[in-house]
Design a protein around this nucleic acid. Structure first.
Lengths: 206, 206
DNA sequence: GAAAAGTTTAACCAAAAAGTTAAACCGAAT
DNA sequence: ATTCGGTTTAACTTTTTGGTTAAACTTTTC
């Protein structure tokens, strides 16, 4: 079918664009490189996506939703906080490991052109009640003596900082700490436990 | 004096270049913008620094040493670990707050062109004994029952991750958590205590 | 006051990269 | 068989940007 071919090519382009944009950022990316990686030519690339800006906007919003989508688990599931945090850290670390360049990409582009961020942000908070439900859960478990009082924002930030930073800064970290790739893998494996312990420790009542 | 003028202009250029490179990265930076910000013209800019690469290399190595220099405190001072960590987090957070773009700049450029990193790295480890002294201190305090056993690399990474991430990702974090600038400032002020507590908690014997 | 170093002006070159165009080609659907 | 969308080719335009040059002007130095 025509459409199949169409979608295949479109997907090939999107995948290629995603790879290149994520690794090199908007400024470092050349349309020619995307075309090459997608196995097509520049003319066709422009035939599908009029301009670099249009293509970038699409890639960026997809990447953003992917990154933020991983957070949904924290809000949706209806399990005890401690358990939820354990599972989240496990999942989130794996996700980041598989998408090493994603967080840095998002952070960079938002820093450089904050305006690209505004529209996407409004899309997230349609269902504001989910946030309230989460806060409600925390309050309830605190009153029940399971959790101690804490600022959920700080804990949230601690989790993602501890998870993301080592991967985002991998060459720097591995360089400074003189780690080989195998060292780094072991180091990361060990980290999951440590990070989980730290976070649980900062929210669980003694 | 000739030299004074010379150094003034050179410094103006270096400052301007630093500002622009840090915020926009190598690819996003235009020589013209640096010249403008330094209040001179492109011809003079090239008169002082032959090429964009040369100028960048200088800026990058200065920035790198600045960032890494802040870590020296951990190795040099001869005070109990717990105390040392408290002071370090305090200082380091202030430093990062004043140099919001610095860590991201370093991490990005190392990710994109790892080779620029290799030469700088070798310069750091001339005095390898400092590292051993630090490890010795930790071992001693552990045996004395002041500290519990821990991986110093993990703790080190935790500290800098928790300190750097909120600033590097400020627009993203502030956006997601719906914080105004004032909110963010309060949030950061509160953080110092929290981060210190977390780190101390992860190394102090109970 | 002359030589030297610093600086500006303005025009220029060369390369890279985004984006366009037109013609031809191919495969599938009607 | 023909039409139509997807695709290639290749040449082309335009814009941006790094980098150069030469001439003139200014300031410093001796």
């Amino acid at each position: 079918m025509k459409q199949e071919i169409n979608e295949n090519t479109e997907n090939k382009i999107l995948e290629a664009a995603n790879t290149v944009f994520e690794k090199k950022g908007y400024d470092g990316t050349k349309m020619q490189e995307i075309a090459d990686k997608a196995g097509i030519n520049k003319a066709l690339l422009h035939y599908y996506f009029r301009s670099k800006d249009k293509l970038f906007e699409m890639i960026f919003s997809m990447a953003f939703n992917k990154l933020v989508g991983e957070l949904k688990f924290l809000f949706d599931e209806d399990i005890p906080m401690i358990e939820k945090v354990k599972i989240f850290i496990d999942r989130h670390t794996d996700f980041i490991a598989k998408n090493r360049y994603l967080p840095l990409f998002i952070v960079n582009e938002i820093n450089r052109r904050p305006e690209i961020f505004v529209k996407l942000l409004s899309g997230i908070y349609e269902k504001d009640d989910r946030l309230h439900r989460l806060l409600g859960q925390i309050e309830k478990e605190t009153k029940a003596g399971i959790l101690k009082p804490f600022d959920p924002r700080q804990v949230f930030l601690n989790m993602i900082a501890l998870n993301i930073f080592p991967f985002a800064a991998k060459p720097l970290v591995a360089g400074l700490l003189k780690m080989s790739n195998e060292d780094f893998s072991r180091f990361i494996a060990e980290r999951k436990k440590i990070v989980t312990e730290i976070i649980i420790n900062s929210i669980a009542a003694k």
